[in-house]
Design a protein around this nucleic acid. Structure first.
Length: 974
RNA sequence: GGGCGGCUAGCUCAGUUGGUUAGAGCAUCUGGUUUACAUCCAGAGGGUCGGGGGUUCGAGCCCCUCGCCGCCCACCA
């Protein structure tokens, strides 16, 4: 066995070890199951990253925690499946490719056509798709790559279609015309969750809408102290206020509050909509707030969510005035047509001002809805036909499952976030006007004339440019395949049916889309006697629709696979808080609906990684820390340990290089401990039984290891990653290296061959166990050391990754040895402290005298003489009845220890030191005394606490006595 | 406006049902080439636990209140 290098070289080792792990088949549960078919499963599905993305530090944290659990449970014998995969990320990926096209100066998406564009996205996926999974491998992630999935792969696409059809059949998916959040650049609907309201400085304009036919009314203009009007003026107009002047072109009414006396007489009358000339009614509606603005509010049903509701209540027409790219359409007066919305805004204000109808303008700050990603595109409420999921129905079981504790959140408080959203759920708009994604399995055809009832006609607004994906009224065939759709259609029409990709053709019309609404009036005869053509919905589904199925679609659903039976519900989902709504809640809904069971027992919400100043990382701020750079510089283990150690109950993690460096050093420490073992020929002898060791040091180490093992195991079971890391750090650095190895040195260099042999075995054995315990967090260095120290003794075949997790019998704890070594550690620490305080040079080797030592202490001294000499840098230990002169003394157990350092001692300083220590002892004693003298305390405190305090008092008293004796002695010797 | 989280050493954070003298890492200072490790060793200093009030024999921890920081949701004519 070659000597270990002085430091661990992650770069050289990591790729080799990862390849070995993967080649071993150990990432797959199948290996465990082959050995033990009854192995209890443990399953996690990865939050699928964007397929074309790259690993950021948030992924690194998320992946590390999952890998810690995967490795931990694998070592505990569970059949672990950590299922990896990627998400097609509709909008994000499509945008990237569109940007590429723009940069290349080639033709754009629309000119390219759907098929060519989608092909292009697949090409980009082929090129960059492996990036992030390669990067996960560098982190050491032990996913089962054989089971890797992609949201757009064949299996998952089939699952998506099945779910869509089923939900449609159940009436939980429907098509509706309502306002959506419209992205005018991408020209697609986006979800509420993808809109970010950005506080912006704008203006509030007040416009005068003239009353119809010269009508006038009295409007109060001055008020007394009680708010009662004292002066009125005659008005022939009503003032409305708005932050969006351009929308007035689509106004349908002016609303006032029913109880608003100022306008009471006007309800039912009309105003003339300026610039347009249309008469619009003044209506009474609670929505109008008398205290806001002028109390009269313009109602624009097609361009404001609240106004849409008002319009519905009052049967107002929703007149859309925008084209899909948010330019004014042809329902507005000609001079405004084609203008961009922001240009139109200025023009409308100017024109109203010119007409003397601008009542005033004030600066006003408001939250403008922006596209969450770009934070620059203003989102429009826009009237379109879209597909919706009736989320409210699916929500109920999802809420109940968490309330009943079927699924729990960790940290627990996140359940509040979950509840809050689900309790206020809105219908989920699932259609997107994109090309990259799951195309909606719905086909449209003309409606048979006899199916059109008069009430169906009211939604048809001629000239409505909102036509997006299908005519407002058409017959819809929802089916998993085109064949099924054709069959359904053939049955409906009673004649042959074909499918076309040409929308106009499907309706037998060669007319512009904006006119397509008229199609419903066309008798199907127009499609030709020989048959009817149907046309597939052009839209795709929201990316989160397929992600919502992830926990069961990846396991093979709808097929009843062995994996699905074995691994669903999964054990834990580790994810970040920002997708509780997007993803967690929806998986709960879909899982419960389709699998009749929750998708996971536990949701662990990992922290948010911030930079070292507590700032969110962002490309624009330039403070993004690349996890792979950290891996390059310090090794994967160092990064993993850092993220694990910092993954406490707090909501965020401030990542600093310094911290990573510290944990790299920790790895080096462990590495060197292994070197020390190697140099000292520490080997586990054949037949060595750690339960039978005799030496106090070895018994103590065994106990400390057992305690650590229990702590680490318990912490990982509770997802207390930080506690596990802290316990490992403490044990390896402080217990094993600082004390055990130092105390073992005199034994290993001594001539007691029995003790030496036992210490070698115990040390080697303990290191082996330590490697196991550390492996989930730091897999590379532990695996490397496991291989490098193979000669340390008999051990299971194969990789450390596959070794059983340690579990020690309770007898490994040894109170006697603990007390013994505890005494030694305390004594050495005191000696060191005194030496340092008294400036005793390291080379000096003073004698130590113990005054009033018991037999037990005398035996301890005898047992640990060599260690005491070495660590305390002493040249003698003796016993006496009195403190010798020129000594600094301190209490040690029942005895008083005195370090003879005559040459260095400064009597005044020593007196001061003793005095201070006496002061501490006195105040300790006083405090406890006071407590014990408190009748209430004695009456109410539990017996154990009282006893504890009695003991404490006794201790303080003896300490005080010893220190005082030392002080007196010092004076008498002076 | 509603909600969530945080405020503990110079910095970053632990502190599990209330119970020894409130801990760790980093930073700082002092001293060290002790044959595993200077990516190291030994020692030290440093905290009125955000303010106020309450409950309790006892509060960093429980309750009320105020303040500041961060985040989420909603609304804003």
């Amino acid at each position: 066995m070659p000597m270990l290098e002085k430091t661990f070289d992650p770069k050289a080792v990591e790729p080799r070890l990862y390849a070995a792990w993967e080649a071993s088949g150990g990432f797959s549960p199948d290996k465990t199951l082959a050995r033990n078919p009854d192995a209890e499963p443990f399953c996690m599905v990865i939050p699928p990253p964007n397929v074309t993305g790259s690993l950021h530090v948030g992924h690194a944290l998320n992946d590390t925690l999952q890998d810690v659990l995967a490795r931990f449970y694998r070592m505990r014998g569970r059949a672990v499946l950590w299922l990896p995969g990627t998400d097609h990320a509709g909008i994000a990926t499509q945008m990237v490719v569109e940007r590429q096209l723009a940069e290349e100066g080639n033709i754009r998406r629309r000119e390219m056509g759907r098929e060519a564009f989608v092909e292009r996205v697949w090409a980009w996926k082929a090129e960059s798709g492996g990036n992030i999974t390669r990067q996960m491998r560098r982190l050491g992630c032990s996913c089962d790559w054989q089971r890797e999935r992609f949201t757009l792969d064949d299996g998952l696409s089939a699952a998506v279609r099945k779910v869509f059809v089923k939900l449609h059949k159940d009436g939980l998916i429907y098509r509706d015309k309502r306002l959506v959040n419209w992205h005018p650049e991408l020209q697609t609907a986006i979800s509420d969750l993808e809109v970010e309201n950005v506080e912006t400085k704008g203006s509030m304009w007040r416009f005068r809408y003239p009353m119809e036919a010269g009508l006038t009314y009295q409007h109060p203009v001055a008020f007394d102290d009680e708010g009662k009007p004292t002066e009125w003026e005659t008005r022939d107009y009503i003032v409305v206020a708005t932050t969006r002047p351009e929308t007035m072109l689509g106004d349908a009414a002016v609303a006032v509050h029913p109880g608003d006396e100022r306008y009471a007489g006007l309800v039912g009358k009309s105003v003339v909509l300026p610039l347009v000339g249309r008469l619009i009614p003044i209506i009474a509606d609670d929505y109008a707030d008398p205290s806001k603005g002028t109390g009269a509010v313009k109602i624009t049903p097609a361009h404001d969510f609240n106004d849409f509701q008002v319009g519905k209540r009052h049967g107002l027409p929703a007149t859309n005035i925008f084209t899909p790219d948010a330019k004014l359409n042809d329902v507005v007066p000609e001079i405004y047509r084609g203008l961009d919305r922001f240009v139109a805004r200025k023009r409308v204000v100017a024109d109203l001002e010119a007409l003397g109808l601008l009542d005033g303008v004030d600066p006003h700050s408001l939250a403008v809805p922006m596209d969450e990603k770009s934070k620059s595109v203003v989102i429009e409420p826009y009237l379109t036909d879209q597909w919706y999921v009736d989320a409210a129905v699916l929500t109920k079981p999802a809420l109940k499952a968490v309330q009943d504790g079927k699924t729990t959140f960790e940290p627990k408080h996140w359940d509040k976030t979950y509840y809050h959203w689900l309790e206020n759920i809105e219908p989920w708009c699932i259609s997107r006007q994109l090309w990259w994604g799951h195309r909606i399995p719905a086909w449209y055809g003309p409606v048979k004339k006899e199916d059109i009832s008069s009430s169906d006609l009211r939604n048809v607004v001629v000239g409505n440019n909102s036509f997006v994906s299908g005519p407002d009224e058409s017959k819809i065939f929802v089916a998993e395949t085109e064949d099924d759709a054709l069959k359904m259609a053939a049955e409906y029409y009673g004649r042959p049916v074909g499918a076309t990709s040409d929308r106009a053709k499907a309706f037998g019309l060669d007319i512009p889309a904006s006119e397509a609404a008229k199609a419903i009036f066309i008798d199907i005869k127009r499609s030709g006697d020989e048959g009817v053509l149907i046309y597939r919905d052009e839209d795709v589904l929201d990316t989160w629709f397929s992600s919502a199925l992830w926990p069961f679609s990846t396991l093979g659903w709808p097929e009843s696979t062995a994996d699905l039976k074995r691994f669903y519900p999964t054990n834990v989902l580790i994810t970040s808080f920002d997708i509780i709504f997007f993803w967690v809640a929806r998986m709960m809904m879909m899982g419960l609906h389709f699998m009749d069971d929750v998708p996971f027992d536990k949701v662990f919400i990992n922290a948010l990684v911030l930079d070292d100043k507590g700032q969110k990382m962002s490309k624009t701020k330039g403070n993004v820390i690349d996890p792979l750079e950290l891996v390059d510089e310090y090794g994967a283990d160092a990064l993993r340990f850092t993220l694990t150690a910092m993954s406490g109950p707090a909501r965020n993690i401030r990542l600093s290089k310094q911290r990573v460096e510290g944990y790299r050093n920790f790895g080096t420490k462990l590495w060197n401990a292994a070197r020390f073992c190697q140099m000292n020929e520490c080997v586990v002898a054949e037949g060595f039984d750690p339960g039978a060791v005799k030496g106090p040091l070895n018994r103590w180490l065994r106990g400390e290891l057992a305690k650590t093992s229990e702590t680490v195991t318990g912490a990982l079971e509770r997802f207390a990653f930080d506690e596990a890391a802290a316990a490992l750090y403490r044990f390896i650095w402080n217990t094993f290296c600082d004390w055990h190895l130092e105390l073992a040195k005199p034994i290993l260099n001594g001539d007691d061959e029995t003790a030496k042999a036992e210490t070698r075995c115990t040390t080697a054995w303990a290191l082996d166990q330590t490697l196991k315990l550390l492996h989930p967090v730091a897999p590379f260095i532990t695996e490397e050391l496991w291989a490098a120290t193979a000669e340390f003794g008999p051990r299971p075949e194969g990789l450390l990754m596959g070794v059983a997790w340690p579990q020690f019998p309770a007898e490994y704890l040894d109170l006697e040895a603990e007390a013994d070594i505890g005494w030694l550690v305390d004594l050495v620490s005191e000696v060191r402290s005194i030496r340092s305080e008294m400036n005793v040079p390291p080379s000096a080797r003073p004698p130590l005298t113990l005054v009033g030592a018991s037999d037990a202490t005398r035996q301890r001294v005898a047992r640990h003489r060599a260690s005491l000499f070495a660590l305390g840098r002493l040249d003698a230990v003796s016993f006496a009845d009195a403190i010798p002169s020129g000594a600094a003394s301190f209490p040690s157990g029942e005895a008083t220890a005195a370090l003879s350092i005559a040459g260095f001692i400064d009597v005044a300083a020593e007196k001061a030191r003793l005095k201070k220590a006496i002061g501490v002892a006195i105040s300790d004693a006083d405090r406890v005394n006071k407590k014990l003298g408190n009748a209430d305390f004695m009456a109410r405190a539990p017996e154990a606490v009282v006893a504890e305090n009695r003991e404490k008092l006794a201790e303080a008293e003896t300490t005080k006595a010893k220190l005082q004796a030392a002080f007196v002695r010092l004076e008498s010797l002076d």
